[in-house]
């Protein structure tokens, strides 16, 4: 069979070659930061975190209890109805045991792996999960479907942030 695949260019360099001084390059980084407005729905969501509550919104058309709360239901495209408090317990929808940092470097020797999970919160509609971390659990003990409960920071330390919940621990 005749090969007619056309390939040209793509000159590979090793990191050593790139840094040898013979390959010309410049490096630059943007020295800037961002600030984000919370918006209406997340403003209340985070304000309730400070009080130790998780709050959702209900869609007045499909009656989904939506978490995180939103100003509108993206499925029905109508403004949300009432605010609804949900529980701070839930089940693990899925999880990971992560040994790398955000920049793809390995976590330090002896450091505990990060334990991200999607947690379906009790009281919200089925499948409504939020991403958070797990804690007070050995990595090999985590199971999908496991019941967990939020561990809140002491009231004085809360800032109105998703991290006002330190992590979720097994019930």
């Amino acid at each position: 069979m005749q090969e007619k695949v056309k390939v040209s260019g793509g000159t590979g360099l090793t990191e050593k070659e790139a840094r040898s001084g013979k390959i010309f390059y410049t490096e630059d980084s943007l020295d800037c930061a961002f600030a984000w407005d919370t918006g209406v729905a997340i403003n209340r969501y985070l304000a309730e975190f400070k009080k130790g509550n998780i709050i959702a919104t209900e869609c007045r058309q499909c009656n989904r209890i939506m978490l995180p709360p939103r100003l509108f239901c993206e499925l029905c495209f109508v403004p949300s109805g009432d605010w609804v408090y949900v529980k701070d317990t839930g089940i693990v929808n899925t999880f990971s045991i992560c040994h790398v940092n955000w920049d793809a470097s390995r976590i330090k020797e002896g450091e505990k792996p990060h334990l991200p999970a999607v947690i379906e919160i009790d009281g919200a509609s089925e499948g409504m999960g939020i991403m958070h971390r797990l804690g007070e659990v050995e990595p090999d003990q985590i199971e999908i479907g496991m019941k967990v409960k939020a561990v809140w920071r002491p009231k004085a330390e809360r800032t109105g942030s998703i991290t006002d919940i330190k992590y979720f621990k097994p019930l």
């Binding site: 790139a18 010309f24 490096e27 930061a33 961002f34 600030a35 403003n43 955000w102």
Partner: peptide, 25 residues
């Protein structure tokens, strides 16, 4: 309600990335 909106600013947590631009062929 907009008036009491908080915002989150990562401040020093801004991620320290950079780009390297090769001069090319």
């Amino acid at each position: 309600r907009n008036i009491d909106n908080r915002y989150w600013n990562p401040g020093v947590k801004a991620f320290p990335v950079k780009n390297r631009y090769t001069a090319g062929v």
